[in-house]
């Protein structure tokens, strides 16, 4: 479970988050939706313990977050997070050495599912393949929280759909809390249990996706367009 209590974050004079409070339950997949610079990535980085908030409290499974919350939290950054001189297998081995919950068998399965050559040098990988490797590294962990920041950016639209479906089999629906921050709503809409709309550092709305469809007759994209209408 993840809890934000009156959390604010400032970057110099810029605002990251403003007095944000919410809680996310175990066993659900959440979508974090909002325009660029709205605070989606900041929210994920705070949960990952990589950004220190200015005010408030953030708990993951009841533990206040700091850098070492990485033990419970798997984080896929929107940016390139690789060591350039490494090969694919070096990155896998490095993760396996640092995270107790890293499952080598799952990593190997994911590598072949993603059609990644373990002996390929990272600097020779295309943007799409680098994106795939980031997914392998995050999904091969048995972490209680899985944070995916723009996980499908750079992926070929023709394979994106099949990759998303394939990845579903690696999510532990009973025990994991998954948060996906993305612009590619189309592909992930069927996965989501709830969506949170973030704008100007605030969570401006939160909806259960099923209720949205059944009671309001809206898809997530339609709801998003309404919510973010200027």
């Amino acid at each position: 479970m993840i809890e934000f209590k009156n959390v604010s974050k400032k970057y110099g004079r810029d605002i990251g988050l403003v007095d944000v409070s919410f809680s996310l339950e175990k066993g659900k997949i959440y979508g974090l939706i909002g325009p660029n610079g709205s605070g989606k990535s900041t929210t994920l980085k705070i949960i990952a313990g990589l950004v220190h908030f200015s005010k408030g409290t953030v708990l993951v499974d009841g533990i206040p977050v700091d850098r070492r919350i990485a033990k419970k939290v798997a984080y896929l950054s929107e940016l390139d997070m690789f060591y350039q001189p490494f090969k694919v297998k070096d990155m896998i081995d490095f993760y396996a050495s640092q995270f107790e919950d890293f499952r080598m068998d799952r990593a190997n399965e994911l590598l072949s599912f993603m059609k990644l050559d373990p002996d390929k040098k990272l600097k020779q990988l295309s943007k799409g393949n680098r994106g795939r490797l980031k997914l392998v590294l995050a999904m091969a962990r048995d972490a209680s929280v899985l944070l995916l920041d723009e996980p499908f950016s750079g992926l070929d639209p023709m394979v994106r759909d099949s990759i998303v479906k394939g990845l579903l089999s690696y999510i532990d629906y009973e025990n994991q809390t998954v948060i996906i921050a993305t612009h590619e709503i189309d592909e992930i809409e069927p996965l989501l249990d709830e969506v949170l709309a973030v704008k100007d550092g605030k969570v401006i709305d939160r909806q259960n996706v099923e209720d949205l469809r059944e009671t309001k007759g809206l898809s997530v994209i339609q709801w998003m367009k309404e919510t973010f209408k200027e």
Binding site: K45, A48, L50, R67, R68, I69, A70, K71, Y75, S77, L79, D80, M81, F82, Y83, Q98, F99, E100
Partner: peptide, 16 residues
């Protein structure tokens, strides 16, 4: 300086 360019080094459960 290399580690400062990404958050890969800091995203680690082991002690400083």
């Amino acid at each position: 300086n290399i580690e400062g360019q990404t958050q890969l080094w800091l995203h680690n459960p082991n002690s400083g």
